[in-house]
Write a protein that binds this DNA or RNA. Structure first.
Lengths: 158, 158
DNA sequence: GTAGGTTGCGTGCATATGCACGTATTTCGC
DNA sequence: GCGAAATACGTGCATATGCACGCAACCTAC
């Protein structure tokens, strides 16, 4: 071991096979990075929360419909909705079908969404600037293609 | 805006602008989908856990080095390591620098990793089959390009 | 040598994610 | 009608994610 004053070792991946290129790990890494990018430009709102607001409307819609549109687990949606309900941005109403839980934006929710949309637009523009104006459409095309090929494989719900 | 009689509309995304294509939302959606794909083929191990095992080695390395290599928040790493420690797949040792927390694979951890690597390889191959053999390299190239352009913007740690 | 900045780390808080399981309602087959 | 299948939903559990804050050990300048 070479002597070293203070420091940390940044060498050696440590006795083993180097990790092979994993599509899953890579996409998650990029998702983290991009999420962080957006959120640093959207004060007071997580990206997921904004996404939720953007998919909500004045018209009450059932949770299941929302989860399908967002292609997100129903139970995740239930929990992600909680802070928005607590903030008074979303209200729930009862419909004819007693099983359904209908959710819609409140006036306050619409205001928050409009304000956030501005920030989002800025972030999106800045992201496209950073990644390259002509790069982003290509990236999107590939992401969409991957989504189209990868079937959700719905277990029970959704 | 034409005033429409109640009952004319059946679909309607609910009184508002349809969500614009958001790179962040799209990549998170794909990340969820792909994660689910891998995990359905890796019994008893989350994708993140496998990724961690794959980046660990026999040689003890400090947490901070690991978090840098994984490009992941240090505190997230701390927590993600916990189940692996509990399972006896990872051990921690003390080094010269009392600040550092050195972690390495145990023999059991190596065995688990080797078994998991097999499953991972199958999953990866199947994914490439599903997405298209020639598609995946292109996708990777774009993901890597995006990662290269998007600087982490390290706040304090990491 | 010691004060003060730096570095490595853990915890509390808040959200994100999805599976297994259980519950309530509705619809369907007969 | 009525019992079974289908549908919509919540909760418990386990992990994933990162920021703010605080602590301890280390290093550097003086």
């Amino acid at each position: 071991m070479p002597r070293r004053a203070a420091g940390l070792r940044r060498e050696a991946p440590a006795a083993s096979v180097p990790p092979l290129p994993c599509t899953g790990a890579t996409i998650r890494r990029l998702a983290r990075r991009i999420t962080s990018f957006y959120e640093s430009r959207m004060p007071g709102l997580r990206l997921g929360q904004y996404s939720l607001l953007a998919h909500l409307g004045t018209e009450p819609q059932p949770l299941c419909a929302l989860s399908r549109r967002l292609e997100m687990d129903r139970t995740t949606l239930t929990r992600n909705l909680k802070p928005l309900l607590a903030a008074g941005w979303v209200r729930e109403t009862a419909g004819a079908d007693a099983r359904l839980r209908l959710v819609a934006l409140t006036p306050a929710g619409r205001r928050v969404r409009e304000r956030a949309r501005t920030h989002w637009k800025t972030a999106q523009a800045e992201l496209e600037e950073t990644l390259g104006r002509d790069f982003v459409p290509v990236l999107h095309a590939h992401l969409d293609a991957a989504l189209a090929r990868l079937k959700p494989a719905l277990p029970d719900d959704n």
